[in-house]
Amino acid sequence: MTGSAENTEVSRAHFASGGAGAAIERWTLRNGRIEATVLTLGATLHTLTAPDRTGATAQILLSTDELGAILGAARHYGTVVGRYANRIADSRITIDGEEHQLAPTGGGVTLHGGPDGFAHRIWAAEEAPGGVRLRLHSPDGDQGFPGALDVQVTYTLSGDALTIDYRATTTRPTVVNLTNHAYFNLSGEGGGDILGHLLTLDAEEYTPVDERLIPYGPYEPVAGTPFDFTAPRPIGKGIHDEHPQLRAGGYDHNWVLRPRPADGSPARAAFLEDPASGRTLEVLTSEPGIQVYTANSFHGAVTGASGVPYGPYAGVALETQHHPDSPHQPSYPSTRLRPGEEFRSTTVLRLGVA
């Protein structure tokens, strides 16, 4: 595929003509045969359309126009989650000797920033070169987190690559961990499960978890386990193995990526291929980890645009981020952000055909 950000057409419209949807904008980015739409609700990557090996295009994200479903518990279809993606144990953090109680989401954790996290907010948006820039102000004490946080997320479409660029600053020492929570199905939304997709992860280790899905400490090697995706492997090959880490019926784990470039530029983290359609997705990131979630707990409560209810394994989330519960794990890369510093993170989704 060819193209550049200068060739990207950018437009915006109301998400709906009335009700709550009238306050939400839908931004459309189009470059050749690649199209992405972004909602100001949750800074959501709502749809992503790409061609297969025959040139036929399909929408490859789990997606719905039902606002309640977009915001449904633990689903987060394409939203930006924060201010702390993934889980923090016991809903508390300690910074510089001061303890901060966070808003709990149940199960003894705070997940994705709390019950009223960034995914539930309407972000301000403006056109950026080749894309859209979204901004959000999170006040001091929001969901229990210290510091007023100013966040910026920019989506840029250039040829076959969609770049998501994150920035944040704070007024007090705090912790920050941002990611996008899109679910991919390269066969096309509603096109069956992803168990036959081939996944490669640039990671020799992962963080095993307890019953709360909180890492219990040191990294463990993937070699010889169902977590070994160092070479292309069908997602479903070992997903039902008798392994203590697969008791939830699938993957919802963080892999420790190979060292990232010191200059913060993104390097490859994952490669996903659908043998049936030939569509591929290469994920590059500056982040040290990637959470793979295979939609184990989906039970058909949400029906997508295709008219197909989303059941288990309807899609796979590839969430580039820092490791879960890093504030309680001093051996993990730090998520601390202080005044005068800038949080920076970049992830690239590069589409192709095998």
Rank of each mutant, 00 (worst) to 15 (best):
S277D: 12
T346S: 08
P339V: 03
V81I: 15
T28F: 00
A314Y: 03
T64P: 03
E211V: 12
D165V: 02
D274L: 04
P104V: 01
N185S: 03
R279C: 06
L186R: 08
A58D: 15
Y332T: 01
Q245S: 09
L102T: 06
P312G: 05
A161G: 01
P312K: 14
V353L: 10
L136W: 10
R260F: 03
A128Q: 11
G78T: 06
R30E: 11
F118Q: 13
G117A: 08
Q143E: 15
V348Y: 08
F343Q: 01
A262L: 10
L284E: 11
T40V: 04
A36F: 05
R268D: 05
T94L: 02
R33M: 07
I194R: 01
T163V: 11
E341M: 02
S63M: 11
A203E: 08
G106Y: 10
A203S: 07
H197M: 03
E66Q: 15
G72I: 00
D202Q: 14
L111G: 09
D228W: 11
A301M: 09
D263C: 09
T154N: 09
P173G: 12
A124G: 09
D150N: 13
E342P: 00
P333S: 02
V283F: 02
P324I: 04
Y166V: 10
R133A: 12
V209L: 03
N254C: 15
H120Y: 09
L41V: 07
G78R: 08
L157V: 12
R212S: 13
E211M: 07
L257K: 13
A317V: 05
Y166G: 04
R233W: 01
P104C: 01
D52A: 10
G236P: 15
T169S: 10
Y332P: 10
R121G: 00
N31S: 15
G300K: 12
A270W: 04
A89G: 14
E205W: 06
G78D: 05
P333L: 06
D52R: 08
P139D: 01
S334K: 05
P244A: 03
S11M: 07
R12D: 02
L62Q: 12
G304E: 08
A23N: 06
L157R: 12
V10Y: 02
S187V: 01
G106L: 03
T179I: 02
F184V: 07
D90A: 14
W255G: 08
Y166P: 12
S286I: 09
N180K: 04
A16S: 15
E242G: 06
I164C: 14
L198P: 13
P327E: 06
R30L: 12
Q329K: 12
G78V: 10
T285L: 06
Y155F: 15
T179F: 06
D165K: 02
T171H: 08
H299S: 15
D140I: 05
H181P: 14
V283M: 03
T40K: 00
L111M: 11
Y166N: 07
H253E: 10
G236H: 06
P333D: 04
